[in-house]
Design a binder for these strands. Structure first.
Length: 154
DNA sequence: GCCAACGTTGGC
DNA sequence: GCCAACGTTGGC
């Protein structure tokens, strides 16, 4: 079972929004980056663990836990001209973009801020893309060691 | 709001 | 296939 981190802008979709979906989960549509797409499509499995991360906000950081709750399937918003993430080059016969659904598990008892994670940039979190400058991946892998360490900060 | 860093696009 | 221009991300 693998571990992941999903970024979301809380103004657009927050951990509270995910919690409101409850068991129904949320289709994580709109990912339009090939590296992220490959992880969604090829590597994620039902039951994988997810750190839910708030980006582009006052205190960026890990705010909750979720899990992958569906297999990967084509992101239909890419086929919809009215959708914000419409991509005319994604052919329904050969979809370019995929998604998984994620399901809320719980809030962390406190936000584990990016600044705090960076305190360990020379230690357990040295290889985490998240804390590297200029990182723009919206979905990224987390190692078992990183997962345990970050949860241990809670 | 600024701006550095990055991925993508498209001309050549 | 190179690479400059562009749009976007996201911390600060």
């Amino acid at each position: 079972m693998a571990y992941w981190l999903f970024k979301s802008e809380p103004d657009a979709f927050s951990i509270d929004d995910l919690a409101a979906r409850a068991a129904a989960g949320e289709p994580w549509d709109g990912v339009r980056n090939y590296q992220a797409r490959n992880m969604l499509r090829d590597q994620m499995r039902i039951g994988d663990s997810v750190f839910f991360y708030h980006s582009n906000c006052r205190v960026p950081g890990v705010v909750g836990l979720a899990e992958v709750s569906s297999p990967a399937y084509p992101d239909a918003t890419a086929f919809d001209p009215a959708a914000h993430y419409f991509d005319p080059k994604s052919d329904p016969e050969n979809p370019r973009w995929y998604l998984v659904e994620i399901r809320y598990l719980r809030h962390l008892t406190r936000t584990i801020a990016l600044t705090e994670l960076k305190d360990h940039a020379d230690g357990p979190l040295a290889d985490m893309p998240l804390i590297r400058r200029g990182n723009r991946l919206s979905v990224m892998p987390v190692t078992a060691q990183q997962w345990a360490f970050i949860l241990g900060l809670e």
